[in-house]
Design a protein around this nucleic acid. Structure first.
Lengths: 228, 228
DNA sequence: GTCTATAACGAGATAGAC
DNA sequence: GTCTATCTCGTTATAGAC
């Protein structure tokens, strides 16, 4: 009886994975806006209604893909952070940035799903938030280590932004100075600007040696958050 | 006869504009991936085959929308630059950045069309390049003015990036130092990272006072390209 | 209980004959 | 330019296999 349940549970996990895999393939070919349950079912030799045992709606399948993508990116970032554990703060920062870029280049359609244009008619639920936060937390961790260790350099915030900076710090990392959190959020957005421009074709005929360019740019971002 | 031709030409321009307008509405509702000539025709009370007199394919209609969007954004940037003509370099820089953000907030779907995920199965032709370059040229102009006037401050490029920096400078602005062009291209991508994060929902529950945050972040970008 | 398959709905897209 | 027949889609109800 327990083995029967185990087999069923295992089968369920496998089918769920197969559905998501097929959906990711479709994501690459048609884009998120055209993701269709029927096409996924067809590819798997199933009938569309059978998919509803695994995902209650098309939107929930999309949500699962989004969470998987955020988690995969987050894991890549965490792994890069751990692999660079002994290095200086700037080196750890750039290592994580390069892991983000590497993941994006390896998974362009999943990247577009989470950091590209919103899917019309779809609103991501709050369930995606923890997975989405993972990358950011890695960067916060690096800044926190430096803050506690050698301190952060050259950060400032104008008076007009002070309340918002304090609000963000209270929300995201109460142990860090508001100036650092403000710079961090900006650097976070700017990092993904660099990745998106490369991935979405904006650097075509502009930047050729993208790896060197990216490394230099994210080193600048590291300095911008007070790492030295 | 010349009046008849004039009227015909005028009608053609009007219909073309109506088609693009309807297409933009569809862009907002269904997204670029689902832009369909048939739906556009329906909205205009035309038959789909009639549209082919104005746009030879869906892709050409998309291209026209993309060029219009780039031109509209470019014009907004140029206007902001001209309006701030007398001000200091950093103020002119932030004014143009704020115009970019303002345009994006006012035209979110057109922004997604040009700076969001690529449309599956569509590749933008070279015809879009001049329009796409307009915003960038505004920023180059500000940096050039400062370079010629008071000079640029604190720019450097590592040895590994030197050849690429020189290649980019030769391509984009041979009269400017390669360090400045490198910083400028990075700032350009980072600016759109800030705008995209706000527009695509990444700042939800993170940044509340977006205007103040943006102003501070782009001031940092201005410093990053050597403006003081 | 858990799953898959059949059939159907209403809506919309599409292809082709006329 | 119009009409129609045939596709697609998400989703549900239902019946039966395991």
């Amino acid at each position: 009886m327990s083995t029967a349940q185990g087999a069923r549970a295992r089968a369920r996990i496998e089918v769920t994975a197969a559905i998501k895999e097929a959906a990711r393939r479709q994501l690459a070919e048609e884009g998120a806006a055209k993701l269709s349950l029927r096409a996924v079912a067809r590819e798997l030799g199933m009938v569309s209604s059978a998919l509803y045992r695994y995902f209650p709606s098309r939107d929930e399948l999309l949500t699962a893909l989004i969470i998987d993508a955020y988690d995969s990116l987050g894991a890549a970032a965490e792994q890069a952070r751990d692999a660079a554990a002994g290095a200086a703060a700037v080196a750890r920062w750039t290592a994580v940035c390069e892991a983000v870029r590497g993941w994006a280049l390896a998974h362009p359609h999943e990247y577009a799903l989470i950091y590209g244009s919103p899917v019309p008619g779809y609103a991501a639920p709050q369930t995606t938030v923890p997975a989405a936060a993972r990358v950011g937390l890695v960067f916060i961790g690096i800044v926190r280590d430096t803050h506690e260790d050698s301190g952060l350099a050259g950060l400032a915030v104008p008076d007009g932004l002070r309340p918002e900076a304090e609000r963000m710090a209270a929300d995201l990392a109460p142990d860090l100075p508001p100036e650092a959190i403000t710079a961090l959020v900006a650097a976070w957005a700017q990092l993904f600007g660099l990745v998106s421009f490369e991935l979405f074709g904006q650097f075509n005929k502009v930047v050729e040696d993208r790896e060197a360019f990216f490394r230099h740019a994210v080193t600048g971002l590291a300095h911008g958050v007070g790492l030295r």
